[in-house]
């Protein structure tokens, strides 16, 4: 089909028109794309020609390490969920932990020192959670009243023991059975804020459902079970995360979520978890 057309004979008018148009289009668009527009950046000075062409090609000029100073690195915790850490926690002796826990009982058990419920109940809480929080208090990554001093007085083995002790007990906290919670009433269209946040979250604001990590249903290591916890305590912690007072959450997971919540939503979510524990307790 092609040989008889003289497609490449540039003395014919149509090949001339075609190839000249091609050259003009490529030249003009390349000039604009690689030389003119690639130079301009949103917040910085225009680039020189060489860097502009590189940028136009996609050779990442701007992905190199930035020249400006970075804020100092701040680690939220000294705990990482390595096998060594888990082995340390598993080595906890609940009997011995019982003796250590004498220090804790005054505030964490009974209500005499805890009338406003701002101190969490620990009976039945996962050992990993208690171990991590004690480590964070010890290293100053989390601060709260007397807890920093108490944690400093405990050795790592003491922490593991007392964590094992509380984990072995049963109380108002709903045990982490790993079971999936029933499916009803778990959707975005749930009108109750508490269960909606707990089970569906709010994807528009990047709020993951609480239950994905804190149960019921889903549990992630280091995230405390919340069903049955004091609502006032949960609400206070959410507010602390939101305001950046508490910063020992790995990858800022809780700060990122809590910042998105309104005070009313924090209250509803907290109330939901408190209520859930009671409901289930009465059922049993």
């Amino acid at each position: 089909m092609g040989r008889d057309q003289g497609a490449f004979k540039l003395d014919h008018p149509w090949p001339q028109i075609g190839w000249i148009s091609f050259a003009v289009i490529i030249f003009v668009s390349s000039l604009l794309g690689f030389v003119v527009l690639s130079r301009y950046q949103q917040n910085d000075e225009p680039l020189d020609l060489w860097n502009a062409i590189c940028r136009g090609l996609g050779i990442s000029f701007d992905s190199a390490p930035s020249g400006s100073t970075q804020p100092p690195l701040r680690t939220p915790t000294t705990i990482a969920w390595t096998q060594a850490t888990l082995d340390q926690i598993r080595a906890g002796n609940p009997q011995r932990g019982g003796f250590v826990a004498v220090n804790c009982a005054a505030c964490h058990e009974g209500l005499a020192a805890n009338p406003a419920h701002l101190i969490p109940t620990l009976d039945g809480m996962e050992a990993e959670v208690i171990f991590k929080q004690l480590a964070d208090y010890r290293s100053g990554k989390r601060s709260w009243g007397v807890m920093n001093a108490i944690a400093k007085a405990l050795s790592i083995q003491d922490s593991a023991d007392v964590a094992a002790y509380f984990a072995s007990r049963t109380g108002q906290l709903l045990p982490n059975t790993g079971e999936r919670a029933p499916q009803g009433g778990r959707g975005f269209r749930q009108s109750d804020t508490g269960p909606r946040l707990a089970f569906a979250g709010d994807p528009q604001r990047g709020v993951a459902p609480c239950s994905a990590c804190h149960g019921p249903g889903g549990y992630k290591i280091g995230a405390p079970t919340l069903s049955g916890q004091y609502p006032a305590y949960i609400e206070r912690q959410l507010a602390s995360f939101a305001q950046g007072i508490r910063q020992n959450d790995i990858y800022e997971q809780m700060r990122a979520i809590a910042r998105q919540l309104t005070p009313g939503e924090m209250q509803s979510a907290a109330a939901f978890y408190g209520l859930q524990g009671r409901q289930l307790a009465t059922k049993n």
Binding site: M1, G2, R3, D4, Q5, G6, A7, F8, H12, P13, W14, P15, G18, W19, F22, I26, L57, G58
Partner: peptide, 26 residues
């Protein structure tokens, strides 16, 4: 009609050049 408007050899050749320039590097 001119040969160029009665077949596609010329235009396929130009298109091939377009594709080499536009998609070769990417």
């Amino acid at each position: 009609v001119p040969n160029a408007l009665n077949g596609f050899a010329l235009w396929n050749a130009i298109l091939l050049m377009f594709m080499v320039v536009e998609y070769g590097y990417p």
